[in-house]
């Protein structure tokens, strides 16, 4: 039942012949109330799917922007339970936008995988990405998520060669997340020409939509990726709007949502434009 929100959204976008725009935000950044306001505003601003980061003190695959976002959220008391509460609040008004929770193992280990899966399903979460749980360690989490009908979304990377890829996509569902650069979030830029063949390869091997993230900051880059992938994910550039809003004493929500609008617009028109060029 819950799985179908992701499938339904990708099916709908396929019919519209366009890629999804996926917005990543850090839950509780800069604080719970503002974070909730941002989350609730994302669908209208153009986010087709939402990744909700749950903060961890030691995010080893994040660059400085998302590290700082996690620190802001933690400093203001964000927890895994509050992140689940935030999703539940969001679901009261939105029954269709898929929500993927993304973060690191220890808060989940601490909550207990089974309890987490049940609580996440009850809150209206659709899938989970856990950055530091590779396939070799994933079975206990995958069992728990399966039991609650949640998707475990896997990360494929530039180091996922033909030997590794089958391991990566085993037990994955919903979509595959292609990490387009070897590196941390928010530093290197994705290269659409290099990404395209990998997206094809992962799509063929998994039979699932492929979302691309980790190196997309601008509407131009988002549009390029949207021409070759099923979804373009932007995270660091959005949390940087939070930082800038705070520094300039402007509305953080307005800044983030306006950035989402420009990125979503670029993704929506990407394939149309490429036909007319």
């Amino acid at each position: 039942m819950t799985k179908s929100r992701i499938e339904a959204r990708f099916a709908q976008l396929k019919a519209e012949n366009r890629a999804a725009f996926v917005a990543y935000v850090m839950a509780g950044d800069p604080d719970y109330a503002t974070g909730l306001e941002i989350l609730q505003g994302l669908p209208a601003a153009g986010a087709d799917l939402i990744e909700v980061g749950f903060p961890f003190s030691d995010p080893m695959a994040e660059g400085p922007p998302i590290q700082r976002a996690a620190q802001r959220a933690l400093a203001n008391g964000q927890t895994l339970k509050k992140t689940l509460a935030m999703v539940a609040e969001f679901r009261k008004a939105d029954q269709t936008t898929p929500i993927i929770m993304m973060g690191y193992a220890n808060p989940l280990v601490h909550h207990g995988y089974d309890a987490f899966a049940r609580d996440a399903a009850a809150a209206g979460v659709d899938g989970v990405i856990c950055v530091d749980i590779p396939p070799e360690e994933a079975d206990p989490l995958a069992d728990a998520l399966d039991a609650s009908e949640l998707s475990l979304i896997r990360l494929a990377t530039p180091t996922s060669d033909d030997k590794r890829l089958p391991v990566v996509i085993r037990r994955t569902s919903g979509f595959v997340y292609y990490v387009s650069v070897a590196g941390v979030t928010g530093v290197k830029e994705a290269d659409a020409a290099a990404v395209a063949p990998n997206v094809e390869r992962i799509r063929a091997a998994s039979g699932l939509p492929v979302a691309v993230g980790f190196g997309i900051k601008t509407p131009e880059r988002a549009a390029e990726i949207a021409r070759v992938a099923d979804a373009a994910v932007v995270g660091s550039a959005l949390v940087e709007e939070v930082a800038t809003g705070l520094a300039m004493n402007e509305s953080v929500t307005a800044r983030v949502l306006s950035k989402v609008e420009s990125l979503a617009k670029a993704v929506r028109s990407a394939r149309v434009e490429s036909l007319t060029v």
Binding site: M60, A61, A105, V131, D132, I133, P134, P135, E136, E137, R154, L155, A156, T157, P158, T159, S160, D161, R164, V168, V179, A182, G183
Partner: peptide, 20 residues
């Protein structure tokens, strides 16, 4: 073989590093 001492140890790293 999976790097475990009882329940401890393992390989909890981002996918990019797993092949390495």
């Amino acid at each position: 073989a999976s790097g475990r001492f009882g329940d401890y140890g393992g390989r909890y790293v981002p996918e990019t590093l797993m092949p390495l």
